[in-house]
Amino acid sequence: MEDEVIKKFLYVNRKAPYGTIYALESLEVVLIGAAFDQDVSLAFIDDGVYQLKKDQKTSVDSGAGMKNFSKTYLALGDYDVNKIYVDKASLDERGLTADDLMELVYEDEDDDYKEKSSISIVNQEEIAQLMEQQDVVLSF
C-alpha cells in the first residue's frame, strides 16, 4: 500500500531562467518527479514568471550564451504536469501579461483528449491557498 501513496507536490519557481541555475535544475526535478505519478503543480512567482516568457533568446549574439531550455516547459503537458499557476502580481510588476507567456497545453483524457491550457493566472491569495493544500513544497 505504501507504494501507492499519492502526495501533492508543489514546485515554486522564483528565479529568472538564466541568472542562476535554479530554474534549470528545478525543471530537472519536475521531469524526474513526473515518473513517480504524484499530484504535481508548479507555481511561478517573482522573477520566476520570466521562465515562461515566449521567444527567449540565449545565444551569445543575443543573450547570455547559455543553452535555451525554455522549450522543455512545452513538453510538461506530455508528462501529465498540467497545473501551472502564474502569479498575476508578479506579471504586473514586470509589465507582462498572459500573452507574453508560452502556450503550455495538455490533452485532457477525461474530455476526449481536447487540448487545454495548463496555465492559470492567479492572485496571491490563491497561491497561498495552493501552498496550504500541499504535502510537499519545493522552492527553487
Binding site: V5, K7, F9, E28, V29, I32, G33, A35, F36, Q38, D135, V136, L138
Partner: peptide, 11 residues
Amino acid sequence: SGLGQLIEAGI
C-alpha cells in the same frame, strides 16, 4: 545518486 531519491524523500 539520482533525483528520484529527492522525490522519494518527499513521498
